[in-house]
């Protein structure tokens, strides 16, 4: 079982980091006269997690949507494994803050949808769907509808669906932002555990400083409106990122550092 394509990425039997390289090359995003993000450069190595943190409205979602190919950059370009993105490349999965589930489909049907779309054989779809639902801890809820589930369980479904395509890149837009604090905490460590088993490239957008440090191999701090890259912090915390890491002094020091960057007066929250 792997999150990604066996041909292109390591599996359990060959540990290492899989996934694609993502290049955000001098991207500026404009909506009419309004600039949402300005001259963003970020290189994400295969299998790396890069967190993007910044105050609300600094262009995090806009940037992520550009990486997903949902909106074209006004200037600059986004490349996934060297290929310029003009629509969502094969093997890029996305997890949304508000889950984006089909309300009229069961958990099972939601997770299976990307596989059905690709016209895979029925047995393969059934087997893979069962595997994914097991992986996110939803076994027993296959026939439930999203409205019958808690927010945390809905996001587990969203995650399973994003993983169905064996993504090389996972784009996360505040995936735990709509959940209560405890549920978010549980899901964070579960996602990290899954990632440790099958490391793939991840771009993790959040406004939570803790979350950014916990997930990131690097943390990109955006500032101002329009958002610009204020600083990029290397996070040399050990893997796996579990509770022990989150309690360490190094973690606290890094969090302090990111906090002061986000809060620094020249981070320009005005406007």
């Amino acid at each position: 079982m792997s999150l990604h394509d066996r041909r292109k990425a390591p599996t359990l039997t060959s540990p290492g980091r899989g996934g694609a390289a993502v290049t955000i090359d001098d991207v500026t995003m404009r909506f009419g006269d309004r600039v949402a993000a300005s001259n963003i450069r970020v290189d994400v190595a295969p299998g790396e997690i890069v967190s993007v943190v910044g105050p609300s409205g600094c262009g995090k979602t806009t940037l992520l949507r550009a990486v997903a190919g949902l909106i074209a950059p006004s200037e600059g370009s986004v490349k996934v494994d060297g290929e310029t993105v003009d629509r969502t490349p094969e093997g890029v999965g996305m997890v949304f803050q508000h889950f984006g589930l089909f309300p009229w489909k069961t958990v099972e049907a939601n997770v299976a949808y990307p596989l059905r779309l690709r016209g895979l054989p029925k047995e393969e779809i059934a087997a893979r769907t069962r595997e994914l639902i097991g992986m996110v801890g939803l076994s027993g809820f296959e026939k439930s509808y999203p409205h019958q589930l808690s927010g945390g369980m809905q996001q587990r479904t969203g995650l399973a669906r994003a993983l169905a395509v064996r993504p090389r890149v996972l784009l996360m837009d505040e995936p735990f932002g709509a959940l209560d604090a405890q549920t978010a905490e549980v899901l964070r460590f579960e996602l990290l555990r899954m990632w440790e088993e099958h490391p793939i490239t991840m771009l993790f957008v959040t406004h939570s400083i803790d979350e950014a440090v916990l997930f990131g191999d690097r943390v990109v701090v955006l500032k101002g409106r329009p958002g610009r890259v204020h600083e990029v912090i290397d996070v040399a915390l050990p893997h796996p990122r579990d509770r022990a890491v989150a309690r360490s002094e190094e973690f606290a020091a890094l969090r302090e550092r990111v906090w002061s960057l986000v809060m620094s007066p020249d981070a320009g929250q005005a406007g």
Binding site: R65, R87, F96, H98, F99, G100, F102, L117
Partner: peptide
Amino acid sequence: PANLGDVARVLNVPRSRFVLDFVLPS
């Protein structure tokens, strides 16, 4: 429903399937 339009585009859902699987049920 929330985010479903983005879901269709991320999955590169073809136009006919979009009407069938997204627009009509909603």
